[in-house]
């Protein structure tokens, strides 16, 4: 306190109150700069982590598309070998037939036939007040339930946004998007199924079935459309079907194990 004070006697009490107050100020200063440093150090840890994850996802996606190209090339090569061997030996016809049917069962060929197309889309409305935001979006579990219902109703081939479902396909949630066969898909979702279209449709509309379970979402504006078609084309599986751990069991080995 730089105060003009003409009286000399005043300087005595002045010292006695300024020193303790200065100590108090030291404490204040420590608090301020500590807090300032803490704030600076911490930053936004969540945000940083998020950008890291995003980068990782992008890298992995790039790698995946590269591997997909590799795979397509290899497949082409394989087909060339097969046709070459077919040409050379007519007796290969039986094997070729078997091979083709195995490929069809594995989901590696385009398939067409009658079936059902189900369209799902997030609600255009926004949740207000006490609305549960869960029922404004299409979730991975909805698609899982739908696909399950399709298989059990006799569907022979199913695809979700042109991602063919095969023996090791998965449908799961990844933040705002859904992963099918480890590929990100976004709404609107189009699930195609080849099979007995009438049976499939009625089983979806069964009481307590898929459509009933979607009622709360449909009331909030989520779109669910079921269409029967005479001809649906379902694309083949794009990923790899390599077994790294599983091996076929030969009969001899089986006997050994049971002993």
């Amino acid at each position: 306190m730089n105060r003009k004070n003409p009286a000399k006697a005043k300087s005595d009490w002045k010292k006695s109150w300024q020193i303790p107050l200065a100590l108090g100020c030291i404490v204040l200063g420590i608090m301020v700069s500590l807090q300032f440093r803490s704030q600076k150090n911490e930053g936004f840890p969540l945000y940083n982590e998020r950008t890291d994850l995003l980068k990782m996802v992008r890298n992995l996606e790039q790698e995946r598309s590269r591997l997909q190209d590799d795979l397509a090339e290899t497949k082409k090569l394989m087909e060339e070998y097969v046709t070459a061997s077919n040409k050379s030996k007519a007796s290969m016809e039986v094997i070729d037939k078997e091979f083709n049917s195995a490929r069809m069962q594995a989901g590696l060929t385009d398939l067409e036939g009658p079936g059902v197309i189900v369209k799902l889309n997030d609600s255009p409305n926004r949740p207000t007040g006490t609305d549960d935001p869960y029922y404004f979006l299409v979730h991975d579990v909805d698609i899982q339930a739908l696909v399950n219902e399709l298989w059990s109703a006799g569907a022979e081939a199913v695809s979700v946004n042109d991602q063919r479902l095969v023996s090791n396909s998965s449908i799961r949630c990844a933040g705002p998007t859904i992963l099918v066969n480890a590929t990100r898909i976004t709404p609107p979702y189009e699930i195609k199924a080849i099979g007995p279209s009438k049976i499939i449709e009625s089983s979806l509309r069964m009481t307590g079935g898929f459509m009933d379970s979607m009622i709360p979402s449909i009331q909030n504006g989520v779109e669910v459309k079921i269409q029967r078609r005479d001809k649906i084309v379902i694309p083949p599986y794009q990923g790899s079907l390599i077994f790294r751990y599983a091996q076929p069991v030969t009969e001899i080995e089986e006997k050994k194990e049971t002993r």
Partner: peptide
């Protein structure tokens, strides 16, 4: 004077 000095010392110590 003392107060400002104390504040500065505190800021430095905290830093």
């Amino acid at each position: 004077m003392w107060l400002v000095l104390g504040l500065l010392v505190g800021l430095l110590m905290g830093a």
